[in-house]
Amino acid sequence: MNMDETRVRLDDALSTLAEAFQGMTAHPDESQCDCHWGSAEELALLKTANVQLEADLLNRTWQATDWRDRAAILRRILPQFTRALVGGCLDLTSPLGHPGAVFAAGEWQQWPARQSRAVWEFLHAWWAHTLNDAHPAVPADDVLAVCTEAAGTLTPWLSVWEQQSHPTATEHLAESLDGWEYDLLMDVLPWRTDRDEEGAEETRVELTTWTISHAPARLRAQHAPEHLLHAVRLLGLTGPDRWYDPHWPVPTPLGPAAE
């Protein structure tokens, strides 16, 4: 699919999602702190169907983690929330919350089939369009993080990236690795996650293994900077072989060998 086709797919996914969640409201008994979150009038808007929320209220709503019924809150805001995501209007670095975690906390995969399919198609359509867009509103590495955290798995998104071998998708790979380089070399998942340590480590290992296998040829074909090629090579090394390599990017070697 080319960029125009993926844009149509994404627009269709957003429209389908809006239809699937039309009329949704927060739970009638939902409450929130009027000192730290907002007013009773704003809470009442969440309990009213099909009312557009101002940007500030939308942000405070998705970033709050103490809702009694997080699934109902997510269903209420999803049409507006997803359009804000696609438009790059949300702060993905906010310490108050991560959009992917909002999806996960809502347990959308357990929702009725029409609703869960709409969410799944939105995530796939957004990712496909991002890989085909040379200048997406949200960088590919951030979209990957949201999709992975929302779905609880990295595998389908990497599979799509592997299949999308055209120059734009490869350029996104180079840009992402430029941001991930240090974290991956330190054996750290390069984005925030609310999953447990084991889940985060499994994702980190999967991302590293995929990068070692699929990135080198694509980066060379794209004439990527040498430091990225060395970073991928270093990911295939362990212990002192990595730390004492002349291209190790950290001035002081780390680990037992440095003691």
Score class of each variant (00 low, 15 high):
Leu158Tyr: 10
Ala174Asp: 06
Glu175Ser: 14
Glu171Leu: 14
Glu175Thr: 13
Glu175Ile: 04
Pro167Thr: 07
Gly152Asn: 01
Glu171Val: 01
Glu171Lys: 13
Gly152Ile: 02
His166Asp: 09
Trp161His: 08
Thr168Pro: 04
Leu158Met: 09
Leu177Glu: 01
Ala169Asp: 07
Leu158Thr: 13
Trp157Met: 08
Glu175His: 10
Thr170Trp: 00
Pro156Glu: 12
Ser165His: 10
Ser159Arg: 15
Asp178Gly: 10
Leu158Phe: 04
His166Ser: 03
Pro156Thr: 15
Leu173Phe: 07
Gln164Asp: 10
Glu149Gln: 15
Cys147Ala: 15
Asp178Lys: 08
Trp161Leu: 07
Leu173Ile: 08
Glu175Tyr: 00
Leu177Asp: 01
Glu171Ile: 06
Ser159Leu: 10
Val160Trp: 02
Glu171Thr: 11
Leu173Trp: 06
Trp157Lys: 06
Ser176Thr: 12
Thr155Asp: 13
His166Cys: 03
Glu175Asp: 15
Leu154Asp: 03
Pro167Met: 13
Leu154Met: 08
His166Thr: 03
Asp178Val: 00
His172Thr: 00
Thr148Ser: 07
Leu158Glu: 02
Asp178Met: 04
Leu177Trp: 06
Thr153Trp: 01
His172Asn: 00
Ser159His: 12
Ser159Val: 13
Ala174Ile: 08
Leu173Asn: 00
Glu149His: 08
Cys147Gly: 05
Cys147Gln: 06
Glu171Gln: 15
Ala174Tyr: 04
Glu162Pro: 06
Thr148Tyr: 08
Ala174Met: 07
Gln164Tyr: 04
Thr168His: 05
Gly152Leu: 10
Gln163His: 12
Gly152Glu: 04
Cys147Pro: 07
Leu177Val: 10
Cys147Thr: 15
